[in-house]
Amino acid sequence: MIAAAPLSLADALRAIADDPFATVIAGGTDLMVQINAGRRPVTSLVSLRNVAELKGWSTESGNLRIGAGCSYSELERPDFAAIMPALAQAARTVGSPQIRNAGTIGGNLATASPAGDTLPVLVALDAQLEIASSSATRSIAISDFLVGPKQTDLRQGELIVAISVPVLRGAQEFLKVGTRNAMVISVASVAVLADLDAQGVRIGLGTVGPTVLRGARAEAWTRSNIDWDSNRVVGNLDEFVALVRSDSHPIDDHRSTKRYRSHAIGICARRALQRVFP
């Protein structure tokens, strides 16, 4: 076998079990860049393009289940945005229309870049990933799945099948800083999601650590500094910003500096919280 285009999940799992050296390709927006540049030797491909079980999304009893093969474009659409606005916003900031038409949420997870645009939202939501191999299926929390920069807990012979997140009541915001609006890899990004029923705020921080981080200290601050009857921030936002920065662990690299990222993440988080609780 040199190229397989399975139509079912079972066939896809069998294909990668039979050929451990196969390269799995979904949207191809990261992988093909490496292949084109000659940085990634390929001897066989298993394409997930036509796998029926990876397509589409659905809601059931307060949960949203997103097929790993959903493109960013699908997540941008109004029907999805009405349910999970922050994820739709994050999807809209990915690359360009051409990239969003091809790239998938499963690919964003498997690539596991600290700058992956959907990841702050998924981390904030404690997403559960459904993972399958030809012999078993398992469920894993996203925080356990993302183990380092471009490193995941995905094992040989496994595929990400779907992502499950709770549907929350309350406003949401995703903000991202880059050098321009389109075609930009994040320098810092933040997801701020109100959870009015739990009287809490969920915060995901992107590109300010080895993996996407949870803003745990900043979240704790919101519990006592938001008036949950009027849904207004009553505390000092400077404290909130300081906690967001203390939740972050940015570094200097070719895209930005530790200092700028720390600055930007605080401003973005403040702005996002103000939009969620205007």
């Binding site: 040199i2 390709i25 927006t29 093909m32 860049v33 292949i35 690359g95 360009s96």
Partner: peptide, 24 residues
């Protein structure tokens, strides 16, 4: 995938042809 000069439609969807493995 940065420049869009290779944009084509695959099954009616606009994509960069450079990021599509032809065999798929």
């Amino acid at each position: 995938g940065e420049c869009g000069s290779c944009s084509v439609l695959v099954d009616g969807v606009l994509v960069c042809a450079c990021l599509v493995a032809a065999v798929t």
